[in-house]
Amino acid sequence: MVRALSLVPLSLAAALALLPVSTAVAETQKTSAELSLESAAAVFERKMEEFGARAERIQADDSLSETQKGLRIAALWSDYQPHVADFTAEATRQASQIAQAALAEIDIEAVVREATAGIAPMVEGLSTNGAWAQADPEHMVTYGLIAQYGMDQALDAMDEVEAALAVPPAPPVPPLPSET
């Protein structure tokens, strides 16, 4: 027990020592789409930081009124709007490629097989052991009565619809005169 506890700090130290290596391996396993998206995000982040710094300088300028500050920041934003559009387009382009690559790695047949693995025995059990599978004459009479009840309900509903359609619509009632 004491020996196992003394290995815990060594394991943690080993994991921390291997962290840069595992990060480097993870970096090499990234797709070109992921790397492109990260690069575009870094450029976009720098542009937004630049915008933020410039907007803060405008806000800090006491010689400007609030209206002037708002107009200058809006004008500044119009300068950065193309960067937003470019990043959005790039992110959309790369995200679809990343999703496509991720979906290519999924074995759809295996997912379906796993999802339906428990269903077949259940269906087989119901079909062979359930009351519906029994040819008992009393059950057959009961099922016939249930089916007849459902048919009678449907026929009654159709009769009600026919009766409603046969009655001519009532003439519209004129609105009451308003007391003004």
Rank of each mutant, 00 (worst) to 15 (best):
121 P>Q: 03
153 Q>A: 14
172 P>D: 09
104 A>W: 00
109 E>F: 12
118 G>Y: 11
170 A>V: 15
32 S>K: 03
21 V>D: 00
127 S>K: 02
30 K>R: 05
61 D>A: 05
94 Q>H: 03
120 A>Q: 15
150 G>Y: 11
134 Q>K: 11
40 A>D: 03
66 E>I: 13
129 N>Y: 01
24 A>E: 07
175 P>W: 10
133 A>P: 06
137 P>E: 06
19 L>S: 09
21 V>P: 03
177 P>G: 12
93 R>S: 03
91 A>D: 03
82 P>I: 08
162 E>D: 14
78 S>A: 08
84 V>K: 13
141 V>Y: 05
136 D>S: 08
137 P>M: 03
179 E>C: 12
123 V>R: 04
175 P>M: 10
161 V>Y: 13
95 A>D: 09
15 A>Y: 11
68 Q>W: 07
144 G>K: 00
65 S>T: 12
122 M>H: 05
103 L>S: 01
170 A>H: 14
93 R>Q: 07
105 E>T: 01
128 T>A: 02
35 L>C: 02
106 I>T: 03
173 V>F: 12
26 A>I: 01
115 A>D: 05
150 G>K: 07
158 M>V: 13
70 G>A: 09
27 E>K: 01
98 I>R: 02
118 G>N: 15
133 A>S: 15
49 E>V: 10
18 L>P: 04
175 P>I: 06
88 T>A: 14
134 Q>M: 05
105 E>Y: 00
56 E>M: 12
21 V>Y: 06
98 I>Q: 01
108 I>K: 10
168 P>R: 08
45 E>F: 09
130 G>P: 04
100 Q>G: 13
26 A>S: 02
50 E>H: 11
25 V>N: 01
163 A>K: 15
10 L>Y: 14
124 E>G: 04
61 D>G: 05
125 G>R: 01
86 D>F: 08
47 K>G: 08
23 T>F: 01
147 A>M: 07
149 Y>R: 14
144 G>A: 00
129 N>M: 00
110 A>L: 10
155 L>H: 08
35 L>H: 00
79 D>I: 11
88 T>P: 10
169 P>D: 12
100 Q>N: 14
22 S>Q: 07
53 A>W: 02
